[in-house]
Structure formats: structure tokens, C-alpha cells
Design a protein around this nucleic acid. Structure first.
Lengths: 335, 335
DNA sequence: ATGAAAGCGCTAACAA
DNA sequence: TTGTTAGCGCTTTCAT
């Protein structure tokens, strides 16, 4: 026996399909009607078809969150926050992974026009004109958790990387570290570019010059190790040429770095202090626990979800651009 | 201007909607027809509506993966593997989180009947009769990545925890550790129960008695720390009463444990060796890198996806129950 | 090869 | 309050 439809329920209950629909949607009906319908529903094990419903009402009550890499713990934090807001509003959240390529992001955004979901929160790693264009043309509301130009005319919610860098640099300075190196992710990404700029500014503002800078090929643990090896091998062996602190562009890179420091016989924080960014779960799980710049991923997730819900309600709102301020979570990787 | 429909394209191209549909689906048509349709599609920026299509053809070309906790790195591995298989087969993968409660799992499985996706891979933490019933009654194919009774009559693909435990215990034994303790997750979960049983058997098979056993309230880092505190506080302070090795039921618990060991001034692996389970990315990221039982999460993910695709093709196949064999990834947390 | 039309399962006018 | 009915956008017979 195949799945029962609303027509089957109507037949079983001896009422019209419209009445079944009404009862199911809580619209006014006599107690007797409600009872008959519910009995029939129960008996047949009827479950309304979401596709048919959404085809009719034009809404799926699903929202999509697209992230670049599920393995990056910063997205876990964000996901949790988005999930909370979204489910409280009666939506299901589905998560999809885009990978590091902008073409996949564009394909995803374009695909949203097919009606998979009522809205999208996307945290793009790389942004180009194609992506912005696809977002603008997207039939469903999109909010960007990241940095796109104001001219894109889209709701965005982003971190303040420069401010975060300042926090990191000044914390290190205050701890007496002045020979600071930097492990960034790819500078052709949005966060990579922002952090490069932020680092340069923060150093300059404090009259410092960086001891060394390397760029990992992506924001992963493995890339962090690789970059750290490059960093360490490029340095004179003597202690005087070495950095006494390293800032990493995210926690995964920082943890990768710490492994290489240990492999080189360097102790954290005694010989080298390390500061990560994102303040993800990994920061407290790492050993030693990692001092990390909290870029507000939970708040960004929460507010992105709120922005999306608001725009679904009212598509004429003028786009908002929210910036979340960073804080510093000090742990034992800095003295 | 609202989204163009197939009718709009037909009008613009001066052909019938049937012809548009045919061209879009690659069915035979004259070159001229194909050209006219494609021009109209291009011009209007037409994108077919997946909801309407799936209502008609009865398929969404979406598959769902449901996991209990996105913060558990074992699911990252599994997700990646599932994603690979599924997207190669032309499906989109959507990931949803159920949380630790079985009622949420049941709700999810029931909800699948609404037609959100063509199939489901679920890795349930807790299993009860309701869940099994909902899986059996589910209108779309479900494969369980985990352990449910054969009587459930459902495709399953599971790890061999007892064998994994044996690997762990014998490795420790071989390294000269005999005073072994165990940090498990909740025993009312499927993995928790399996690991408790496996640990008991493995110890018995080697003529060993466990020094101590604790049960964390869930499979998280925080719970691991908590459980480890309990473990350590229940032990005599003298070295002779202390375990010289601890096995943890997953990597998160193991890392939590290592933090508490360090807080107690105990060195890993010198004073205490630690073995985790899952061999997730966290195992290599932790410090020291964690020896971990590889329960084949990538392979389980891959084969679960394959099983699901096969069942979508042919729903009459007799259910398969695949067991993936474990291996041990030795790292520096054991001597 | 192409077009007309039925209908997937549901909701929302509109009528009664 | 309840029933009848027209679609939502698409695919797929069945004619032509």
C-alpha cells in the first residue's frame, strides 16, 4: 500500500479534502469534524507531503546554511547558533558544504532558485563578482556571514578582524612579546585578506615589524603544519632571530603551528606564545589551551539567522550590515 | 518580475511547455527546437522548480544525513565520505543534527515521510522500539550507521567495537601497561553499550581486571573532563593504585581526559598512556597526538551511502548488515 | 518531432 | 462550518 494522500483521508473520514486540510492547519471546524479527521489520519498513518504543500504555499519552511568546510570548528559554533534561532522560528535547518571553490558557492546560490529552501545563510570563503551577482539575483533571501562590498546590497554580518588582530597584538605586547610572526590562511580568501590587513595595521599601530609571515594554502590543520614548517625553516636558528610569539589566522592553523613548534623543541608559551582566532571548541581542547580571538561566531550565526528571518518576513527592508565586535579569550598558550 | 515558469519559457520560445520540458530533460528534439528553447531559457534566466518537479516525478534527488552532534569530529569524517559518494551519484546531501534525544530522531525519521529527501542515513545515538518502528514504516529508504537488531530488517553498517577494544587493550598490554582504566560515554547509548561490553570482554580475554571505570554523561569534551575528574578523585593518590593507561570511548572524551591528567600533573604517555576511539581529525590534532582505534568511520560513511543508493534503485533487496573492521592508529599518547 | 491535456498532493478562494 | 474547484510548476501519456 502506497502513501495515503489527503484524498484518502477525506474518503476514510467521509468528508471533503478541504475539511481535512483545514483541520490539519488548525482552522475553525466543529469538534466532530476534527475528531473524524484525526481518527482517519491516525488510522491511515497519513503524513502531509511537504513538497506538494510548498508548491502550493510557496514556502518550504526550510532554511539552508552553507559553509566551506564542516571540519572547521568555527562553523560548528555558528551552526549551533543558527540552528537555535531557526528552529525556534519553526524552520528546519539543513547544512550543506560548498568546499573552497567559489564556483561551487555560485552553483549553490543559483540552485537556491530551484526552491529547496526559503532562505540561505552563506559564509563564503572566496567572493567574486559572479558570486555577488548570483546573490543579488537569487530568488530567495540570502544573508552573507562574511564580508562583501556594501554595493552588493545584501544583508551581511561580519567579524571585525582588524580589531581582533589589535586585541591579539596588544595582548602579546602586554605580555612582553615583541617579536611577533604571523601564520595566515590564503590571502585570496575573504578572511585571509581581512586578517592580513588587520595584522599589518595592528603591528604598525604599535610600532612593530613582523618577524616573519607565511601563508597557508588553506585554513586547515595540515596546512597550518606545512606553513609552520616553512616559517621555522626560514628563520635563523639562534634564539635572537626567532619570534617569541605567533598569531595564527584561525584555531586550526594555530594548533597545526603548535605541533610544529613542539617538533622543533620549542615550548608554548615559554619560548613562543601562540594566539589563534575564532575561539572555537578546538581552542579549549588544544594543549595547551589556546588563547584565541573570539570573532563572535556564535553571535554572527544568531544574528545572521535573525536577519534572514526578518528578510523573509519583509523583503523590502533596506539591507543591513552588522559588524560583531571581537573579544579575547585568554588561555594558557600565552604567558 | 517574478520567477519565470516553464509556461513563460514556452511562450517566449513560441513552443509548447511539453517541448520545453523535453529539451530541458535531454529528450529527442530538432536542433532548431533545442536552440529556441535554450535561447528563451537564457533570456529569462529560467530555473526549473525542484519542488514541482519532485512532486511530479516523486523524487527530490536529495539525501539526508542525520547525526547527533556536529561538534563530534567523527561525524566530520563520515560526512565527507557520504558526501563524496552521494554527489558522485548526482544527489545533493543535506545534513541535519538530531541532538542526543531519541524522540528527536524519531521525529526526524517520521518527518522524512513528508518527502524532504529520497533517502536517509542516520547514525543514532540512542535506539528504542519507537525508532525502529519509525524506520521500518518510513516511506523512504533508511540506512542505519550504527547497531540495530537484525529483526529490524533494515540495512545497517556498523563498527566492530569489541574488536576495536581488543586492539586497544592488546596494544597497551604489549607496551607493558596492565593497570587499565576506562572512560565510557553513556551506556544507554548504542556506542556506549557496545564499548562497555567490548571493554569487559577484551579485559577478560587478557586476564585483566580494570582499575576503574567511569561513565561520562555524553560523548563530549566537557563530559570527558568531568568524568576524568571523577575517575582521578576516586583513586588512591599513590602511584601503585593509579592506572598506567586509560581507554576512552571516543576521541573527545580522550582529549578531555588528557587535560585532566595534565591538570593532575600526570604526563602522557610516561605516567599514563591514553587510547581514544574513532581516529578522528582530533586525534592527530591533539597533543600529544592520540593513539586511537579507527572504527572505520570513513568506510562506514561510504558504504552507508552506497547501500542507500542501492536501495533507492531496488527496494526489494534483502537488507544487508555490514560490519566494518577496526584498525589501530598508533600515535604518541601511547609509549 | 511536437502539442494538448491530465494530474502529482496540496491549499485557498468561492459557493452553498 | 463545509464542500467544490481551480490551480501551484512540472512531467508524461496520448494524439497528431
Amino acid at each position: 500500500m502506497s502513501r495515503p494522500t489527503i484524498a484518502g483521508v477525506a474518503r476514510a473520514a467521509g468528508v471533503s479534502v478541504a475539511s481535512v486540510s483545514r483541520v490539519l492547519n488548525g482552522l475553525p471546524a466543529t469538534v466532530e469534524m476534527v475528531e473524524r479527521v484525526q481518527r482517519a489520519v491516525e488510522q491511515l498513518g497519513y503524513v502531509p507531503d511537504a513538497r506538494a504543500r510548498s508548491l502550493k504555499v510557496g514556502r518550504t519552511f526550510q532554511l539552508t546554511l552553507a559553509v566551506a568546510d564542516v571540519g572547521n570548528p568555527v562553523y560548528v559554533t555558528m551552526m549551533r547558533a543558527v540552528e537555535e534561532v531557526v528552529s525556534a522560528a519553526g524552520y528546519r535547518l539543513v547544512v550543506t558544504t560548498t568546499g573552497p571553490d567559489v564556483v561551487d558557492e555560485v552553483a549553490l546560490v543559483r540552485g537556491m532558485a530551484r526552491g529547496y529552501a526559503d532562505g540561505l545563510v552563506i559564509s563564503p570563503l572566496r567572493v567574486d563578482d559572479d558570486l555577488i551577482k548570483s546573490i543579488r539575483e537569487c530568488d530567495v533571501p540570502v544573508v552573507v556571514a562574511g564580508n562583501v562590498p556594501a554595493s552588493a546590497g545584501v544583508d551581511t554580518i561580519r567579524a571585525n578582524s582588524p580589531k581582533g588582530m589589535l586585541l591579539a597584538v596588544e595582548h602579546l605586547l602586554q605580555k612582553g612579546r615583541r617579536r611577533i610572526a604571523f601564520v595566515n590562511g590564503p590571502v585570496d580568501t575573504v578572511p585571509g585578506a581581512a586578517r592580513a590587513k588587520g595584522f599589518a595595521e595592528a603591528m604598525k599601530a604599535n610600532g612593530l615589524r613582523s618577524v616573519a609571515e607565511v601563508e597557508a594554502i588553506d585554513f586547515t590543520f595540515a596546512a597550518g603544519r606545512e606553513a609552520a614548517r616553512e616559517l621555522l625553516s626560514g628563520l635563523p636558528r639562534g634564539a635572537s632571530g626567532r619570534p617569541d610569539a605567533v598569531i595564527a589566522a584561525n584555531d586550526l592553523l594555530a594548533v597545526g603551528l603548535m605541533h610544529e613548534l613542539a617538533a622543533d623543541g620549542l615550548e608554548v608559551p615559554k619560548d613562543v606564545a601562540v594566539v589563534g582566532m575564532d575561539d572555537s571548541e578546538l581552542a579549549e581542547q588544544s594543549f595547551p589551551p589556546l588563547t584565541s580571538v573570539n570573532l563572535g561566531s556564535a553571535e554572527r550565526g544568531r544574528r545572521a539567522a535573525e536577519l534572514l528571518l526578518a528578510r523573509i518576513e519583509d523583503d523590502t527592508r533596506t539591507p543591513r550590515r552588522i559588524v560583531v565586535q571581537p573579544t579575547l579569550s585568554v588561555r594558557r598558550s600565552t604567558p
